[in-house]
Amino acid sequence: MELNSLIQHMKLSRNKSVIVDRCIPKEYPGYVRTITIMQNSIARVEFEVYGYDEGGITYFIQYLDYECLVKNLEEYLTKKLMIGIILIKQGFIQRK
């Protein structure tokens, strides 16, 4: 159910994407890592210098389907993606 909600909200959102993680990783101090799920089963992983909005590196990874994408992101992040909470925080769905 949550995955279908994510896909539906991506189709309706202005950017056609949802940010699922943003942090300063221990492995790359001084960089901000942003992971975004985009349409067509694409994950975008950005590493930008802290305090700047450009000058980093961006990877685009295309998967066969969204289930595979989410599974691999959860494995990479070593945590379960709480899609419902992500959609609430980004204003896609309202709390009841």
Rank of each mutant, 00 (worst) to 15 (best):
Q62T: 05
F47C: 04
S13D: 09
G55Q: 05
Q8S: 09
I57T: 12
V49E: 12
L87W: 02
Y50P: 01
G56D: 02
I83W: 04
G51E: 02
N40L: 13
G51D: 02
S41M: 13
V70S: 01
K80T: 12
G56W: 01
S13W: 00
L3H: 04
L69F: 03
Y66E: 08
G55R: 13
V49F: 10
Y31T: 03
L64K: 12
K71F: 08
F60K: 14
I19S: 10
T58R: 14
N4K: 03
E74K: 05
N72C: 08
V20P: 01
F60R: 15
V18E: 07
I85H: 13
L6W: 02
Q39R: 14
S5M: 15
M10Y: 05
L73C: 01
T58F: 04
T34F: 03
K89A: 15
S41L: 10
Y50L: 14
D21H: 09
D53Y: 11
V45R: 13
M38P: 02
Y28E: 13
R22A: 07
N15A: 15
A43M: 11
F47M: 10
F60A: 09
Q39V: 06
L12Y: 10
Y28A: 13
E27D: 15
E27Y: 03
G84S: 10
Y76W: 10
V18S: 04
L87P: 02
E46T: 07
D65T: 02
T58H: 08
D65G: 00
N40F: 13
T78C: 12
I86D: 02
N72Q: 14
V20I: 10
I37E: 08
V20Y: 00
T34W: 03
I35S: 09
N4Y: 05
V32P: 04
G55W: 11
E67P: 00
D53A: 08
V45N: 11
H9N: 13
I61S: 08
L73Y: 02
L64H: 08
C68V: 14
L69T: 00
S13K: 07
G55Y: 05
G56A: 09
